[in-house]
Design a binder for these strands. Structure first.
Lengths: 209, 209
DNA sequence: GACGTTTGAAAACATATGTGAATCCGAGTT
DNA sequence: AACTCGGATTCACATATGTTTTCAAACGTC
């Protein structure tokens, strides 16, 4: 799973809310997350915030960089993070880490899915979609246990990812809990019935999460 | 501007609402639009529709394909379209059309901008953002005349791109017209004051449109 | 173990945007 | 000129979601 380590690579640690990249600066390194979560986001001048991607263990922050000269979005850790740091010069000139092309494609497709979610889905559908996606990604990373996984996001983070307010995320999660389609407390998610949640997410039969 | 034409390339024509690619099928060709507009979109089972990208003259539909085996989104023409068709086999094995890497990067960044728009912006901000973006792209393609350009979208198309309803798009455009920040009728857009519209769009100083 | 800070929960209220239906208008077509 | 037909417009009304505030529980830190 982990890409090969080159001599110039470094094992690095971050605390929550540290920047891996700042808006409108040239990215100088690519990080492969080993442990912890991070996100890509943009801020509007009045403080409104939209998370544009979430990074879980195994993900590259940001796979898109090798294509671009300047970061449009900032990348920030959400938890403690342990990662491999690869200077970007190498990325441009040398081989890319294995599997990064696939990860780039996945990340782009996921972004389309988020566009549909933010543009056309209700609060319940957005939350079902996001939580399902995160659970599936954790499962593929080998970090799910049965129907449960860690989910170290605050309700504010979830709101900023789904385009809702924290208050409404709280309301909606409550009602979903009441209906028994999910359990979520102290950063731990349990999905009793994957199929039921999938229906709530308004996903097509072919939609990858 | 136009990429080089190879022997296997074809000049092709489409009428409005024809498919360049269908959901969940393998794309077999890449199209470079010479004239006309197209879009990428997804449909939910109940008919809700979200446009995930717009293609103007000079754009490749879809620059993302070479990365991916299956189309997640359908690509549909919005007007009459004249395009160059390039079989995708060539794309994978041969050189990519010049400038496509840059176009891919641009397209990905634009998608982040749309996420912010759909997730966090008001109707006025979304419309200002979209119209500004389209005007700028038309200008860069050499298709703007002074402060005007063609904009062959219906209000329903605009609604499906901005995540609003057609009725609300209409309402909001009216109010913007009344304020004098734009003129838009019979598929023709005029922006008297770029700066004013940019302010309305809630774009940061560095945001590319 | 006490403190301050962050997060989750709740309630009352405000509003931007959606819904459904009718009408109007302009461009083609016969 | 009379007919269509898709799109634009308008209206009255509904509601999902946002706003503001308050409080309590959980958490990290010294």
């Amino acid at each position: 799973m982990l890409s090969q380590i080159a001599p110039s690579d470094d094992l690095v640690f971050f605390r929550p809310h540290q920047f891996l990249a700042r808006e409108n600066e040239r990215p100088e390194a690519l990080y492969e997350i080993l442990e912890g979560w991070a996100c890509r986001h943009r801020l509007l001048s009045d403080g409104r915030r939209q998370i544009t991607a979430l990074y879980l263990p195994g993900d590259h922050c940001d796979a898109i960089w090798p294509l671009s000269d300047v970061c449009r979005d900032a990348v920030v850790t959400l938890t403690n993070v342990r990662a491999v740091r690869r200077p970007l010069g190498d990325i441009h000139t040398l081989d890319r880490p294995k599997g990064m092309g696939a990860q780039l494609a996945e990340s782009i497709e996921r972004q389309s899915g988020w566009l549909v979610s933010l543009g056309r889905k209700t609060a319940v559908e957005r939350l079902a979609h996001l939580l399902l996606e995160l659970f599936e990604r954790m499962r593929r990373a080998g970090l799910a246990y049965g129907q449960q996984c860690a989910l170290p996001l605050t309700q504010t983070d979830i709101a900023d990812a789904t385009g809702l307010t924290a208050v409404h995320v709280n309301r909606t999660l409550q009602s979903m809990r009441a209906k028994g389609v999910l359990e979520f407390h102290s950063k731990w998610l349990r999905i009793p019935d994957l199929g039921a949640l999938r229906d709530l997410a308004a996903l097509g039969p072919h939609d990858q999460v």
